[in-house]
Design a protein around this nucleic acid. Structure first.
Lengths: 198, 198
DNA sequence: CTAATTCTTGGTCGATCGACACAGAATGGA
DNA sequence: TCCATTCTGTGTCGATCGACCAAGAATTAG
């Protein structure tokens, strides 16, 4: 079965690739950038990951699992919609401004402007974001159904607002707004929820 | 002074370039894309606009003057901070979802992921956004000073929130959230302002 | 008319893009 | 041992990138 064992750490290489893609985006990171960042010849990268696009997808999946999974985790671990929402936004603000890591959200910023050739990558990340928006709206709808929020609440509008703030946080973080201000803005946003509490 | 007159409409060409850059971003739009979109040989484009980057900057300046200038106009024409803010967000939602035009905000999405070679373009758009954020915070501060908002209002946090929603709107619009939902979300957001009214 | 100016056409520049071919080295299973 | 398999290192592929040059056509100022 197994031939010659790989001499480099595939996981470490994936992490380096993730950092590069997170910082510069899919098209903004060239193969020679990756060669430099991973310290590997391009043929070794192709052998280990298949293609630049496959490597990117793996990097995003790792991101979703570790960094970007805060929304799913908050949803699973917090008992009230308010705490789930608050934690989601606060963790977003934190993850988007981690020292030593690229600013902002990889899913929001890694494939915004793409040539037509890479539409597939763009649409793929778009689907991730749409899914996040839907799950936030779903959370608010549940909160209404469970009487955490007043029955006259427009769940879609409120959920859309939180999703918009979540994605806007990525832009603001990239623009250099410090974590402290991001967290303060999250607190301000939460009062939208409190205004509709049952 | 004047030699042979130009055979094509420079303004029309600029508009076509704007549409291309708006849709695909700076790096996502290649010179051959521009050649196809403007119907002009590349040398004619260079003769008329100087360089790809200069053309892009002109296109963004046109955008700021016509489409993106809603914030400045709202600020100048509306008498209360509330109406200026509300109009800014509503016009953003409208401009970002104009039929026949690219979705989202050109300043937000045209240079998010860029190779290191074009950092200058990326930073330039970043400055535009930072300036917008600052002017929104300034607007809220003025509203506090003029007793339109309660004196205990955290103007920076509230302003940051509106700026975050404004930029988040661009992401949501690109993801296909229809204008109607965007406008509903703007209404929801405005209740943040009303909660702090004097 | 002439000279200066500016645009147009067609072609091409070096660099870089992502992707892989090939040969040889290193391993495990039969 | 030997062979199938997999990895490593070098080299290069055609395509495309942004940029620009030279030559000629068209126009205007003088």
């Amino acid at each position: 079965m197994a031939g010659r064992p790989r001499e480099f750490d595939r996981d470490e290489a994936l992490r380096r690739a993730q950092a590069a893609f997170w910082e510069r985006g899919y098209e903004g990171t060239s193969m020679s950038d990756l060669v430099a960042a991973l310290g590997l010849a391009s043929s070794r990268i192709y052998a280990a990951f298949g293609s630049k696009e496959a490597l990117f997808r793996e990097a995003v999946e790792l991101y979703e699992r570790e960094e970007g999974g805060f929304a799913d985790r908050a949803l699973a671990e917090e008992s009230t919609a308010r705490e789930a929402l608050r934690r989601t936004l606060r963790e977003a603000a934190t993850v988007y401004t981690r020292p030593g890591k690229p600013l902002g959200c990889m899913v929001v910023s890694a494939a915004t402007n793409c040539s037509a050739a890479n539409d597939a990558v763009l649409r793929w990340l778009e689907q991730h974001r749409v899914k996040r928006t839907k799950s936030i709206i779903g959370l608010v709808k549940t909160a209404v159904a469970q009487r955490e929020l007043r029955p006259d609440t427009d769940a879609q509008a409120l959920g859309d607002t939180f999703a918009t703030v979540l994605h806007g946080l990525s832009v603001q973080a990239r623009d250099g707004v410090p974590r402290k201000r991001l967290l303060a803005l999250v607190d301000t946003t939460m009062s939208l929820f409190d205004g509709q509490r049952a």
